[in-house]
């Protein structure tokens, strides 16, 4: 399975979403699945949530997947109360994710 990792910084919001979105799209356009490493991220805004979801839908349109890794407590909470967590398969670490995917 082709899989590539992109890492996020501390925030994903309307100010900086472009970089993450472009990076994920580039991975998808190459035909690879994507892992978004969010270990360093402690805040995802409304815009950020939508970038994650729309990137996932773009991946699925090409038969690929986007996985999320490393939610902080704050990010997990936001994703839970808004219901965005239900759309994603998420893992605690990149290693766990890779391990699960190779089974």
């Amino acid at each position: 399975m082709n899989i590539e990792i992109h890492s996020l910084g501390a925030r994903l919001d309307s100010f900086n979403y472009q970089e993450a979105q472009d990076a994920l799209l580039a991975i998808i356009e190459k035909g690879s699945n994507a892992i978004l490493d969010m270990t360093a991220c402690n805040y995802v805004s409304s815009t950020g949530l939508r970038v994650l979801l729309s990137s996932k839908k773009m991946a699925e349109a090409k038969g690929l997947q986007l996985y999320l890794v490393g939610f902080s407590d704050e990010v997990r909470d936001i994703m839970e109360v808004t219901g965005f967590d239900n759309f994603f398969e998420s893992f605690a670490t990149v290693d766990e994710c890779l391990k699960a995917l190779t089974i």
Binding site: Y43, S45, S46, L49, D77, I78, V81, T82, G83, F84
Partner: peptide, 20 residues
């Protein structure tokens, strides 16, 4: 009334409640 109200996400949180 939204746990995420401090981040301005009450719209999504309420919609999620209705959906569930």
């Amino acid at each position: 009334y939204a746990s995420s109200g401090r981040f301005g996400m009450q719209v999504d949180e309420l919609k999620n409640l209705v959906k569930r």
